[in-house]
Amino acid sequence: MLFSEWLELVCEIFTPSGRIAAQRFVPCSQRSWAREFRAPLLVAVLTLAGASLSAREVTDQTGRRVNIPEHPERLVSLAPSITETLYALGLGDRLVGDTDYCEYPPEAKNKPHVGAILNPSLEKIVALKPDLVLGSPEANRIETVDRLARLGIPLYGVTAHTVDETLNSIEDLGQVLGRGVEARELVKSLRQRIQAVERSVMGRGRPKVLFVVWYRPLTTAGARTFIGDVIRRAGGASISDDLPGEWPRLSLEEALRRDPEVILFPRSESFAPQLAEFQRLPGWRELRAVRNRRMYFVSDAIVRPSPRLVDALEEVARVLHPPEGAPQEAER
């Protein structure tokens, strides 16, 4: 039953000679909506059939089969990390749209935006005429992915949970977008930088680290996150590695019991004002990290599976193991 039929039913009930009134009332256009409402599916199928001439079926990083063009020319990114990776691969000029939160590199801010990460405007995406949308299950909602699929717009899923997976993800994305060589070069240099960091912290002590993802409730990062991985590689021992889940919550007394030597915060605008409040938490002054003033802000790229994750790694290694003689860059 469709809208016009429903209207007819209502008219029929409210008027003595319903049928005639209903036919007079429901305009022709209304009837054709009803018929055409079934059409989109057919259109989507035809679009797919037409596109497949120059398309190939690939498995994306989340394991979905997806038909993508041989040479994607108009890309829309639905996650800041993907936007960064595209620019790093020299694909900035093919990016036709990104999200309101894509702020790095600065050029990304000037691209047309499709809205927020969790609820991008579907019509904005359609209007940008992308031949490939790039999204991530860590950032976007599955409902958005489903809707795009039904609109016949291919979406390639990008995902990574560790430093290694990030490198693989960058290489894979380069392969899919015809930048295989550049991606391999980029990943090679990133690997060298990672190895340099790992060599530099080898044999040095492993300070106990608390990474504060959010302070109320006190939320930290589990082992299987970029943060856990970066801390480990930077020569630290996260006090939350043994806790279950990606973002375990920590009671303050448990934090006190585990007594971190270093506390790290993401350097983000939304976090800085909260710090004063955080420091007023009961028992806070008793922490070794607070007594020794070893609290640092580190790049918020630490939560982004993009090439800048390695910048964050280098930064964390610097604050955990400051070079001899160098002044500590304590921000508080």
Binding site: P40, L41, R141, E143, R147
Partner: peptide
């Protein structure tokens, strides 16, 4: 939780046929 929180606030954006 993000998905649920969104849905709990009332969301008409992901309707299907």
């Amino acid at each position: 939780v993000r998905g649920i929180a969104f849905w709990l606030m009332g969301d008409l954006s992901v309707v299907t046929d």
